[in-house]
Write a protein that binds this DNA or RNA. Structure first.
Length: 191
DNA sequence: TGCCTGATGTTCT
DNA sequence: GAACATCAGGCAC
């Protein structure tokens, strides 16, 4: 991700960024290996949204969501899982994009071992993706322009390639259509 | 295929 | 003390 691309993300609200990040790639360097995946499913969250961690203000946990765009917000949930978001929007306004699923492109052997699973079961869920890529709270606040985890932007997908639905696994604001996925991808999470 | 449940730590009320 | 942006395994149909 270049500085120019970071500024573009800064200028987007969470919903716009969630659509725009589909098709983009994450590159994770770990144990001398490079793991690469293509983002195929996202959800938008911001501070006006009761389901968002940023809804109750700038708490310690969600602080990174209020920081500069293009950084990684990692949280720990259900006592055993990590999930990651890409921060979007202006600094001071808490918004981000949950990365729910991705297609493995490079380093599949490493992801298989890390997950103990193969095929779409490696990365078709937010916590599965984090396990496959070795993402935990040590990467919270990391700048995605740098190693050991980078975001590589790709051309925006045509609108017809993207499906929008309600988000998964939330109880508040559950009727907002802020989940997006690549319609023909076989790596999208279950409903 | 679909529903139910256990695992297990952090955050917020 | 409850809720939680989840996952995997078990069992019924």
């Amino acid at each position: 991700m270049t500085e120019h691309e970071r500024e573009l993300l800064e200028g987007m609200d969470a919903v716009t960024a969630a659509r725009r990040l589909l098709g983009c790639e994450l590159v994770r360097t770990i144990e001398s290996r490079e793991l690469r995946v293509r983002i195929v499913e996202t959800e938008a969250y911001d501070q006006t949204d009761a389901a968002s961690h940023s809804y109750n203000g700038r708490t310690q946990r969600a602080d990174v969501m209020f920081g500069p765009a293009g950084h990684l917000y990692v949280y720990f949930t259900y006592g055993m899982h990590h999930c990651c978001n890409i921060v979007a929007g202006e600094e001071g306004f808490g918004s981000g994009v949950l990365i729910r699923a991705a297609e493995p492109i490079e380093g599949l052997d490493v992801m298989e071992v890390r997950r103990g699973r193969s095929g779409h079961e490696m990365t078709n869920g937010p916590a599965k993706l984090c396990q496959a890529l070795g993402i935990d709270r040590r990467l919270n606040g990391h700048d995605l322009a740098k190693s050991p985890m980078r975001l590589e932007m790709r051309p925006a997908l045509p609108a017809q390639a993207v499906t929008a639905t309600t988000r998964i696994g939330i109880s508040k604001a559950a009727d907002m259509p802020w989940r997006f996925y690549v319609t023909d991808s076989g790596f999208v999470s279950k409903r």
